[in-house]
Design a protein around this nucleic acid. Structure first.
Length: 926
RNA sequence: GGGCUCGUAGAUCAGCGGUAGAUCGCUUCCUUCGCAAGGAAGAGGCCCUGGGUUCGAAUCCCAGCGAGUCCA
């Protein structure tokens, strides 16, 4: 076993006269030109030296610094590439947001499966780190959104084969030399630069890494990704796992653009350096106007905070007293001065984050990336309100979107406004809830229990602070426990089930030695018959999986169902019912075994295949139409093609309206009429991404060096499915329905070709049938239905009125009933086979006449009894009913003046009613 | 993907096994110089849908649909 110490002994350090030193404060090892240097230079071992006196020769703005960095590496043979979106899930499915420049090249490039877009390359990659959200604005140096400037080189060992790049571009010495040279060019004093040894581990990879510190600020991290997790590896690293060297090794650097700009300007916090205009604007609109003396105080406090070990919010709070004492001011005064600024800094950063997120097409929702966007937006809204900024949030976000050069600014504003509105409604709903809850507890003089507080937050999204405010108005006290968020977490139960049911398919092992099946349908998309040799055959519970050397059968994938058909030999015919692809080997599920080595003729169910091809092309057309109608943020969230109908799930921030559906239909059918050609091509992944962006990955992210593109007019998508040759072949496209399948995702169901005609006819048939029933012509149906419904309601009311009238008439006449005296009371005992409503109404009418009613009915299969007692009569109706209905095999009860009950034994009703006077006597005065 | 909360009058909600309610809004009348004023009368409900339990379900149980929210 060995550690990584040797990895840091660079020729470059030797040549330049560096020495290796252990920090006298933290013990970390670092490299420096200054032999007398004792500490590593990073806070808390040292403090900021550049605030107030910039560490570089010239003052750079953010964009000037970016340009300086990129052109520095361009001049040194690095190709400059465009940054990727911040929504990393657009090209990889293991993460949500881009958190580092190397994300752009994971997993295919770093693993060596695909070539990088250039080698070496340089990029300034916007990133978002939600982990820092609480620290933003407060620590003076944390931002949620930032640009990671980087240069990357992708190397493969000489002897390694089968990788998408080969040989060594450059490695550690050159990387450190570049960094040194860049710093020197900026005017940094080389004597003050330290390179700290800090091995990096992450995501199953690892390697030596170096932190670059200058004047107390970490300016860059140079990572040498060269190891992977390996139980038998030689290296035991800080995460407790073993690692061994890989065949590929990658230079992964990260230079914080914001930090470099800050260093060049020497402002009190990073925020003033990054967005000076935004902060001025916010201060102005929040009415923050400090005197020179106050400004100086704030600046000094910020500088001091930088020198302390301030890594999160709690540290800031703890340090504030110290700082106030040092500055000789009251801690309260310092807080009053600093807190408004902290909010403003955070707002500036959050708005930039939102601009990135929404600009890159993230639609807020309650899941995944959309949830993160919503969280940031709501937090920002609270901060804006707290700080008293009198500018609408959509305008603040738009300012950043404009600065970042996004073109979908109208949509961004619309989304922000829609989200604000929804948040407002949530808060309003919440306030009402809290108010009534608080009033309840205030009446009893109790404080609001913690359980309620947790529920209000978890189920209704109301911050505990908000609850406290509202409750105070109602006069209820609220105690927010320190471990509040832990309690919320508890409510979410036993943590991630983590039942990674990685039941690796046995089938993968079976086919491991078989060659990948030659897929004929790409070259011959319209073919329906072919010949092939049976390579192998596996017996299954319900048939056989036949492997051929080549096939026209499309295996299920990309939302397109498998083809069906038959395999024939000279003697036999086998039905193909399902087709799956396992690691490139196509398995044909059949009802018989043709035998290995047999030559078979395959034939597809041609009609089914054609319908699926139409459906697949239609899916692209509908998706394109949806984007045209709803906006560029519309992305595919899933799709399923079918013979009868297909569906496309798209991200959108509100329900799709009837007008929009019709517009989508019009656009889709226009594309059909234009009869555009549908072309396929197999470009390199990088070329495809460069030419068409990541929007080609609507249907998912395929692996491999090359991707298959399907081009329909302006629409380009990576797609493995089968398509018709021209859009005209799709025929009619009709949208069947839309429905929300989750927040931020709408499902569009549609049909194409003959299925579309059939669907239209079905709808028409329904209408015609309905019209026939109503005996009117189809256009009159809505009006007539309305009239019928109104009449139906009117009749219901009429029936209620008549029931009451009838009841009154019965009560007045008491015909057919028996009247008995129980004590002083007159009791009407009567059977009338009516429903419960009528029974009750009649009993009420009898009671209104001052008499007691005992009514029975056997209308609905079971027996019902109702007893009504006028005021002042000492008979307990509930008790009477209980006794009566017991004899009917059931039960019953109610208040003393009016009760009802019954039982299944309808035959006993007459007897029970006959005995009723006796029962009433028994409960009389009881 | 999972947890939790909620679906009752046009709106906001109460009721939580026994005859569907309140407030605002609406209609008509009275009062008033006038009204987000006062008084009187009235209209307005498949209590989300479907099963189950029960003599009886808006109410309890199950499933579905819908809305909201928190977490991965």
């Amino acid at each position: 076993m060995s550690d990584l110490e040797d990895e840091y002994r660079l020729d470059y350090f030797d040549e330049e006269g560096f020495v290796r030193t252990a920090c006298s404060s933290c013990g970390d090892h670092f490299w420096t030109r200054d032999e007398r240097r004792e500490t590593c230079g990073e806070p808390p071992c040292a403090s900021y030296e550049f605030v107030g006196s910039p560490g570089f020769d010239e003052s750079y703005t953010l964009s000037e610094m970016r340009e300086a960095f990129l052109s520095f590496f361009e001049e040194r043979d690095h190709e400059r590439i465009d940054p990727y979106p911040v929504a990393a899930n657009r090209w990889r499915d293991d993460v949500l947001l881009t958190q580092a420049s190397v994300y752009d090249f994971q997993p295919h490039v770093t693993s060596g499966q695909a070539p990088p877009p250039a080698n070496p390359l340089t990029v300034s990659q916007p990133c978002i780190r939600m982990q820092d959200i609480d620290n933003v604005g407060k620590t003076g140096r944390h931002t949620m959104a930032f640009e990671m400037m980087a240069h990357h080189a992708f190397n493969a060992r000489e002897e390694a084969e089968g990788y998408a790049y080969e040989g060594e571009v450059y490695w550690k010495d050159e990387t450190v030399a570049y960094c040194d040279e860049l710093l020197r060019e900026m005017g940094a004093d080389p004597e003050k630069v330290t390179y700290i040894e800090d091995p990096w581990v992450g995501g199953g990879n690892a390697g030596p890494a170096i932190e670059v510190i200058y004047e107390g600020l970490e300016l860059a991290t140079l990572v040498f990704m060269s190891m992977e997790r390996d139980e038998d590896g030689d290296y035991l690293l800080k995460d407790g796992n073993r690692y061994s060297k890989m065949d590929t090794y990658v230079v992964d650097t990260g230079y914080g653009l914001e930090r470099w700009t800050w260093m060049a300007q020497g402002t009190p916090t990073v925020y003033e350096a990054v967005y000076p205009e935004t902060i001025d604007f916010l201060k102005q609109h929040a009415g923050v106007d400090y005197t020179d003396e106050e400004d100086r105080l704030v600046a000094e406090a910020a500088t001091m905070a930088g020198g302390l070990d301030v890594d999160d919010v709690d540290d800031v709070e703890a340090a504030r007293g110290e700082i106030a004492a040092e500055l000789g001011v009251d801690v309260e005064r310092l807080r009053d001065l600093v807190e408004p600024l902290e909010s403003i800094y955070a707002v500036a950063d959050h708005c930039r984050t939102l601009a990135y997120m929404l600009g890159d097409g993230i639609v807020p929702s309650n899941v995944k990336t959309g949830y993160l966007a919503r969280m940031v937006l709501r937090r920002t809204k609270r901060l804006v309100d707290d700080a008293g900024v009198d500018v609408p949030l959509d305008e603040l976000v738009d300012m950043q979107a404009e600065r970042l050069g996004y073109e979908n600014r109208d949509t961004i504003r619309e989304i922000v406004r829609a989200e604000e509105e929804q948040y407002r409604e949530t808060l309003e709903r919440g306030s009402r809830r809290v108010e009534s809850l608080a009033a309840e507890y205030a009446d009893r003089g109790d404080p609001l229990p913690t359980g309620r507080l947790v529920e209000l937050y978890d189920s209704h999204g109301i911050q505990p602070e908000t609850v406290r405010e509202i409750a105070a108005r109602e006069g209820a006290s609220v105690e927010v426990p320190d471990d509040f968020y832990a309690l919320v977490a508890d409510r979410h139960g036993g943590d991630d089930g983590g039942e990674t049911a990685a039941e690796t398919d046995d089938r993968a092992a079976e086919v491991a030695d078989l060659p990948e099946t030659d897929l004929l349908f790409y070259d011959d998309p319209t073919g329906t018959a072919f010949e092939a040799v049976v390579l192998d055959c596996f017996e299954r519970e319900d048939g056989y999986d036949v492997v051929l050397d080549q096939t026209l059968f499309y295996p299920e994938g990309g939302g397109q169902p498998a083809d069906t058909g038959a395999l024939r030999t000279d003697d036999d015919s086998f039905a193909v019912t399902d087709v799956q692809s396992v690691d490139g080997v196509v398995l044909h599920r059949t009802d018989g075994n043709p035998g290995s080595g047999a030559i078979v003729r395959g034939s597809l169910d041609a009609e089914r295949r054609r319908a699926l091809m139409r459906a697949h092309t239609a899916t692209h057309v509908v998706g394109h139409a949806a984007r045209e109608v709803l906006g560029d943020h519309v992305r595919q969230a899933g799709a399923q093609k079918g013979v009868e109908s297909s569906r496309l799930d798209v991200r959108h921030f509100r329900r799709i309206g009837r007008d929009e559906i019709e517009a989508i239909e019009r656009v889709a059918n226009r594309i059909v009429r234009q009869n555009l050609s549908v072309r396929q091509s197999w470009p390199d992944r990088n070329e495809a991404e460069a030419a068409h962006g990541f929007d080609i990955y609507q249907g998912g992210i395929p692996p491999g060096e090359q991707v298959r593109l399907i081009t329909v007019g302006d629409d380009v998508q990576a797609c493995a499915g089968t398509h018709v040759e021209r859009t005209g072949d799709v025929g009619l496209i009709t949208v069947l329905s839309t429905e929300p399948i989750q927040d931020g995702v709408e499902r569009i169901a549609f049909a194409a070709g003959a299925a579309a005609v059939a669907a239209t006819q079905r709808v028409e048939r329904t209408l015609v049938d309905t019209a026939e029933t109503l005996d009117v012509s189809p256009p009159e149906v809505p009006e007539t239905a309305q009239r019928f419904f109104d009449e139906w309601k009117e009749r219901g009311k009429e029936i209620d009125r008549l029931t009451e009238e009838l009841a009154a008439a019965r009560a007045a006449g008491d015909g057919g009933g028996e009247t008995v005296e129980v004590g002083d009371a007159t009791v009407v005992v009567r059977r009338l086979d009516a429903d419960a409503d009528e029974l009750r109404a009649t009993a009420n009418a009898v009671v209104d006449e001052g008499r007691t009613a005992v009514l029975g009915s056997a209308a609905g299969g079971s027996a019902q009894v109702v007893v009504g007692v006028p005021d002042g009569v000492p008979i307990d109706a509930g008790e009477a009913v209980a006794r009566l209905s017991e004899r009917l095999g059931g039960g019953g009860g109610g208040p003393p003046d009016f009760a009802q009950g019954g039982g299944p034994d309808a035959d006993a009703l007459d007897d029970v009613l006959a005995d009723a006077p006796g029962v009433l006597r028994a409960v009389h005065n009881a």
